[in-house]
Write a protein that binds this DNA or RNA. Structure first.
Length: 561
RNA sequence: GCGCCCAUAGCUCAAUUGGAUAGAGCGUCUGGCUACGGACCAGAAGGUUGGGGGUUCGAGUCCUCCUGGGCGUACCA
């Protein structure tokens, strides 16, 4: 299908309903603010496609009975528009609107014209936005919870782009500080063990086998030179070496997972002379939110909703992680983002309030910084939880997960749940290439459609240039499918506003289900050429919506399986 | 102790941010292919939304207390 990306969306059905209601209110002598008219999609299809509770809300203020008032509003509603064919008062006083068949059919034609551009909106108005996610410390391989963060962040970014935001993605690398020293000491110990020395492994070091592999990459001659130097110096050099390897490794794992970042931001840059760490500290001091106690400098975060004050500069003169993170957000502020979203791991949620306090002190407007929390993932195999030991003979990393169940199933499973709820990842189910596995259910619908379209072409049924044949559609299964396709733009906007990519995953399952039902009842390719063409257009519209949804989720949309 | 998150069908989770009779998938039971992909479809059973109280036309959703789990509560990151 030819896609025409320049087509204007026009006035949506919902805004036309809003307008009509506004007009009816005015005729009744009531002024009403557009914002107060809240439309929603009823759960029960018999309640129509769009429902409005405005009569319930307003009747009380006017001392009228909701149902009577609703009836009065309905009486004044203009019936000129042909996209609505039924308006009724129902329940306690809801006003329900049902889309006409003509409207649904017009949308199918529109989806065919727009192709992948269907669902694009200007909700964001081009606002500049940054999403920072994963940002796991480069002291080891990415683990499962980072994989979840990667899937969620990437999907959210695509949703935001689709709804008109200018989004930049970023990974914050903590490439400096005490943990890098610890990493260096750990690698140093592994290297000496490799040389045959008996050494005690650092108590709070990183025990993973990966450091043994990295130690093997150090040439013994080169390494020995370092050993002759000062221990601290050697640890730093080894730490830097390990960091480089691990960062490259993290990037590759993410690449294999299909997640790319526009920027990898290195914390070390903030610590340079005149850098943001110094600047942030200066701002804190200017705003008089810093005091000295026990030789350290403290931020009065408790005055901004944090439980207690936090140290910015330790008594030994070094900055804390918190100061660096505040400095990092100063850097984000300076880069001019209108809005910033951070996706944190579950172990960092205590960090949120103090970071928002710091951002406010540094001049961020209210709501500038949104922080989402990705909750823990438990891996379940054969009904039992897999223990995630750091040493792990059993797998725990993103790379292992991808190798086991594949990127598609991993992402789909991560995106089925609300991000701030714990997730049980059913490995046994994710591995299955059967109907029990929801990711295949959705992908199968796409493959089936592709196959049918191919078949139709073989049988000589072609996409018509003139889409008037769509008037022939009207079976209940056809209408249900169309109704699901029509809500796609609205669904995307809701997901964008709430930062909830999982809504789209649920939606794909709903679209796939209504397609399979339709397919089962309605023969697509038949002797009736007009009807065949109409159904072909409907099927292609379904394919477009599924393919676009899966693209946003980062899951492949196969034509064959 | 204090703070934040979570608790919905046997299991894993939804529920359009306060809407109408709380929905899907898996599992269980019953049925459906001589035409486009049966990796599919139809039906059944399954609930005092952890518990009590409150707010209102209306609560799974909001406020409060209780129970049970997770995380945080470092001059670690």
């Amino acid at each position: 299908m030819v896609s025409n990306r320049s087509e204007k969306p026009g006035l949506s059905a919902r805004s036309r309903v809003t307008e009509a209601l506004e007009k009816a209110f005015r005729e009744l002598g009531q002024e009403i603010d557009r914002e107060e008219i809240h439309l929603e999609r009823p759960n029960d299809p018999s309640h129509g496609d769009v429902s409005c509770n405005i009569a319930l809300v307003e009747a009380k203020k006017l001392g009228k009975k909701p149902r009577d008032f609703a009836a009065a509003v309905v009486e004044r509603l203009s019936r000129e528009d042909d996209f609505i064919d039924r308006i009724e008062v129902a329940g306690p006083g809801f006003i329900n609107f049902s889309f006409s068949r003509k409207y649904l059919v017009d949308q199918v034609a529109r989806i065919n014209r727009l192709g992948g551009a269907y669902g694009d909106s200007n909700l964001g108005g081009g606002r500049k936005l940054q999403v920072e996610f994963v940002s796991a410390n480069p002291t080891g391989p990415l683990v499962i919870v980072s994989a979840r963060a990667a899937a969620v962040g990437a999907a959210l970014v695509e949703i935001l782009k689709k709804t008109g935001y200018a989004v930049e993605t970023e990974y914050y690398l903590n490439d400096t500080g005490s943990q890098v020293k610890k990493l260096g000491e750990s690698l140093l110990a592994r290297f000496r063990q490799r040389l045959g020395e008996e050494v005690d492994f650092p108590e709070d070091g990183y025990p993973g086998d990966y450091l043994i592999d990295i130690a093997a990459q150090i040439s013994p001659a080169q390494g020995r030179k370092w050993l002759e130097r000062e221990p601290g110096e050697a640890a730093t050099a080894f730490g830097t070496f390990a960091l480089e390897r691990i960062i490259a490794w993290i990037k590759k794992d993410l690449e294999d997972f299909g997640v790319r970042f526009d920027v990898y931001f290195h914390e070390s840059g903030l610590h340079q002379e005149g850098g943001e760490v110094e600047q942030a500290l200066r701002i804190f001091r200017e705003k008089e939110v810093v005091y000295k106690e026990d030789g350290a400098s403290w931020f009065r975060s408790s005055e901004f909703g944090d439980e207690k004050d936090r140290v910015l500069i330790r008594s030994d003169g070094t900055p804390t992680y918190f100061l660096a993170d505040a400095a990092y957000h100063l850097n984000k502020l300076k880069r001019g983002f209108d809005h910033v979203v951070d996706i944190f791991g579950p172990d960092h949620h205590g960090h949120i309030s103090r970071l928002q306090a710091a951002a406010a002190v540094m001049g961020a407007g209210p709501g500038w910084l949104d922080v989402l929390t990705v909750q823990w993932v438990r891996l379940i195999e054969e009904g039992k939880q897999i223990k995630m030991s750091k040493r792990g003979g059993e797998f725990e990393t993103l790379a292992d997960l991808v190798a086991d169940v594949g990127a598609d199933a991993s992402k789909f499973f991560f995106l089925m749940r609300k991000t701030n709820a714990h997730l049980d990842f059913n490995l046994t189910l994710a591995r299955k290439e059967t109907d029990e596995n929801p990711v295949y259910y959705v992908q199968y619908a796409h493959a089936r459609i592709s196959s049918v379209i191919e078949y139709a072409c073989q049988e000589g049924v072609e996409f018509p240039g003139d889409m008037s044949c769509l008037e022939l559609l009207g079976e209940p299964e056809e209408l249900e499918l169309m109704r699901n396709l029509v809500i796609f733009p609205q669904l995307l906007e809701g997901a964008a506003l709430a930062n909830e990519p999982h809504r789209l995953t649920t939606y794909t399952q709903q679209v796939a289900a209504s397609f399979h039902r339709f397919y089962h009842i309605c023969r697509i390719v038949s002797r009736d050429t007009g009807l065949s063409q109409a159904r072909l257009l409907l099927v292609e519209a379904t394919r477009i919506v599924l393919a676009e949804s899966l693209r946003i989720l980062g899951v492949s949309a196969p034509r064959k399986m």
